[in-house]
């Protein structure tokens, strides 16, 4: 490892530590939450802010030590932040479809049922339906 200024070492080390800690927290949440719909929120901590911190550390290190602006890590950053919502939404819809097809109690049976339940829980008086 070549000689680099101290401030760069501190900043790169801090950014990589922050990214690693965020990714670890996301994966611990993935391992410890109870239901799938809680679990799907946790790992996005690693794909959003964990990736941003680690890739920013890489950009800084190679830009200063390589004497030129090296920003090709931005490609990974853009790709990850574009594709993660797509994959998570596909996965959540697939899980919802499977739970509804099996009639599990964790999800409402259809979107209409969910609307009725939400409306029944409100304080707004509902028009009484004919018996």
């Amino acid at each position: 490892m070549m000689d680099i200024p101290v401030w760069l070492a501190i900043i790169v080390g801090l950014l990589s530590l922050i990214g690693a800690v965020l990714t670890l927290l996301g994966c611990l949440g993935l391992a410890r939450f109870d239901s799938f719909y809680e679990r799907i929120h946790a790992p996005t901590l690693g794909t959003s802010f964990g990736s941003i911190a680690v890739l920013l550390a890489s950009i800084l290190y190679f830009s200063v030590s390589g004497q030129r602006f090296a920003a090709h890590e931005i490609i990974i950053l853009i790709f990850v932040s574009v594709t993660t919502p797509v994959t998570m939404m596909l996965l959540a819809r697939a899980a919802l479809y499977r739970d509804r097809a099996e009639g599990n109690a964790i999800v409402p049976r259809s979107a209409g049922d969910a609307l009725e339940n939400a409306a029944a829980g409100d304080d707004i008086p509902q028009p009484s339906s004919p018996q």
Partner: peptide, 28 residues
Amino acid sequence: MSSDILHWSLLISQVLLALAMVAAATRM
């Protein structure tokens, strides 16, 4: 000095990421 800082912080970060991979593999 600076390479020591970088070496140790990168090592700790990699250990933390390895623990994250262990947690994800547990769920898998």
